[in-house]
């Protein structure tokens, strides 16, 4: 089956200039231009089939947003082939954007002074959505995202999380085939995140809408995506199933234990002390050697502590690991 997204060797280079402050330097730089080439994307290739729910992850500055922008048609690549829904996104922008939905987590996309519901109705005319499609769809989405009351308040009075949910509705109202979500769960509380994730899964299942989600939240990825593309320094370092990553790379957990008196010494099988602050221990557990619950039981029985937190290793670490391994291959 023909993929709906086909990217081949996508490259994007920015020219940034580097200038020291001061008038003398300003004049100097007129003659001796100090420019830097920033290679945001160094040749990215991947394909996505209809109905997929793909996670695009990577550390800050990896090139995630640049990829999304190129796919949304608001960025001209330096070179490479980008074919989405049979369009070259930036070439036929006005027709292309009718087929996609985009949510940028950090940007305002709704009419600021109006209730969100007004933006929804205005989008109906903007995207030419037939009445009999629009009304039931809107009703359903407001219900699923718990926005029935919230959408009647001016957007400027809403919390970040509420605004995000409204942006999601606005992006989906015209039933686009493909939706890009750039950091959609920023600022949402736990319950809201759950509601949003359930919503995305529902839409994906029901309408076969393809989703590409960029996020820093590992739980977003775990819940939503079967496939992840990991990008770092402008290249793809992994493109495959989430299961595989988990199996191979998420073998450690990190426990933060905080004490009210100076932290005692710590030693346990399969555990490595990452750092020892005066009042905190950061313990890295190799879950292959030692199941996490055994370590927790040990800590509970042996120590009196103020607080304990169990975390996955930060995604940067996983990516560094994958990247290092790829390099070594």
């Amino acid at each position: 089956m023909k993929p709906i997204i086909n990217i081949q060797d996508l490259k994007k280079t920015y020219i940034t200039h580097h200038r020291e402050p001061g008038i003398l330097n300003a004049i100097k730089s007129l003659f001796n231009r100090k420019h830097q080439l920033k290679h945001a994307l160094k040749g990215v290739s991947f394909q996505i089939q209809k109905g997929e729910l793909v996670g695009l992850i990577g550390p800050n500055g990896a090139g995630k947003s640049t990829t999304i922008k190129a796919l949304s048609g608001v960025l001209y690549p330096t070179s490479g082939l980008v074919n989405v829904l049979n369009y070259t996104p930036w070439k036929d922008r006005i027709h292309y954007v009718k087929e996609i939905g985009v949510v940028f987590g950090q940007k305002e996309q709704l009419w600021w002074d109006l209730p969100a519901i007004d933006t929804f109705h205005l989008n109906k005319d903007l995207f030419n959505i037939p009445e009999k499609e629009f009304t039931p769809r809107l009703k359903m989405m407001l219900k699923l995202l718990d926005l029935e009351e919230v959408s009647k308040n001016p957007v400027r009075d809403l919390s970040l999380g509420e605004r995000m949910k409204c942006k999601l509705v606005a992006a989906l109202l015209h039933n686009p085939q493909l939706v890009f979500l750039d950091e959609p769960s920023i600022g949402l509380d736990v319950i809201a995140k759950d509601i949003m994730r359930d919503f995305i899964i529902k839409v994906n299942k029901k309408e076969k809408t393809t989703f590409i989600v960029t996020t820093h939240d590992m739980q977003d990825i775990e819940r939503l995506c079967k496939r992840v593309i990991i990008i770092n320094h402008g290249t793809i370092v992994y493109d495959g199933s989430l299961q595989a990553i988990k199996k191979s790379y998420l073998q450690t957990k990190i426990i933060h234990v905080k004490f009210e008196e100076p932290a005692p010494p710590f030693k346990f099988k399969g555990c490595r002390l990452r750092t020892k602050d005066t009042y905190e221990l950061i313990i890295e557990v190799d879950t292959k050697q030692q199941p996490i619950n055994k370590v927790v039981q040990h800590i509970l029985s042996k120590y009196t502590f103020a607080d304990m937190e169990i975390q996955d290793p930060p995604i940067e670490e996983i990516i560094q690991k994958i990247y290092k391994e790829k390099k070594g291959e």
Binding site: K98, F104, Q109, L126
Partner: peptide, 8 residues
């Protein structure tokens, strides 16, 4: 950028 995502 939001303006460029509208079909107008």
């Amino acid at each position: 950028i939001a303006n460029f995502l509208k079909p107008v």
